[in-house]
């Protein structure tokens, strides 16, 4: 399923933006500690908070995977509850393949943190191999939707494609910037940064600076930029 809209209004979007803001602080090192269940416990309404976890997918684990924050059992249980509360659509739904890819990433990220998620109710079934769009514009639009798969410990066919099609990826970033679609530009820059050490992209640094300035009021975009920065930094250190 492909929906072309900026955001939906309402509590779920606000909760996702708020959680993204917390993650930016945790990843950038400005927050001393990060705990998902403590953040949720502070909310009056648990439903939007759980929904936000589902919307951000594997990204909610980025603070633990990349910034060294401890991953308590309570946080794993919270992710479990969010998956149960917001189950994947049935396999016949038009967005089933997208959910399957995202849930595969979530399961793999949890496994990296020592949590076995297989069998959790609400997780999508196994994903079929995604078809690779030959045209760069259609292909990069697909990468935008699957940005939560762009995390260093996670391997995927999309990551292989992103490693191989650097020029197409850069075309996608340029197009998104020219359209002033900063959320998409940040998600594609994140893919570009993921394996930057193997395929250096000189335009990545100015793109990230540009996005930091232009998307200062968009927490989810800031999260993608913060993650991209983190990938570049980790690549330079290793």
């Amino acid at each position: 399923m492909s929906i072309n809209h900026e955001t939906v209004s309402g509590a779920v979007d606000s909760a996702a933006q708020a959680l993204a803001d917390e993650l930016v602080a945790a990843i950038s090192g400005t927050a001393r500690s990060f705990s998902l269940h403590r953040k949720v416990a502070q909310q009056d309404e648990p439903v939007p908070a759980l929904a936000a976890i589902r919307v951000l997918g594997a990204d909610v684990l980025s603070a633990y995977l990349l910034a060294g924050h401890a991953f308590p059992t309570a946080d794993a249980e919270l992710v479990h509850a969010a998956v149960g509360a917001f189950p994947a659509p049935p396999g016949t739904a038009p967005d089933a393949a997208l959910w399957a890819l995202r849930d595969q990433a979530l399961t793999a990220a949890l496994a990296e943190l020592g949590v076995v998620a297989a069998g959790w109710p609400g997780l999508a079934g196994t994903a079929a191999e995604p078809t690779e769009a030959p045209h760069w514009a259609a292909w990069s639009a697909e990468l935008v939707r699957c940005s939560s798969l762009a995390l260093p410990p996670l391997a995927s066919p999309l990551r292989e494609q992103a490693r191989r099609r650097r020029l197409d990826l850069m075309r996608g970033v340029s197009r998104a910037l020219l359209r002033r679609d900063y959320p998409s530009a940040a998600k594609l820059a994140r893919w570009l940064a993921l394996d930057e050490r193997q395929a250096c992209e000189p335009l990545l640094a100015p793109v990230l600076e540009h996005l930091e300035f232009l998307a200062a009021d968009q927490p989810r975009t800031k999260l993608d930029v913060a993650l991209a920065r983190r990938f570049v930094l980790a690549g330079a250190e290793s």
Partner: peptide, 19 residues
């Protein structure tokens, strides 16, 4: 809420552009 989550997850690139 379920619809909002599915919508946000399926959201791709912006349909509008002023660039």
């Amino acid at each position: 809420d379920q619809d909002a989550v599915r919508h946000l997850i399926a959201t791709g690139e912006s349909a509008t552009s002023t660039g």
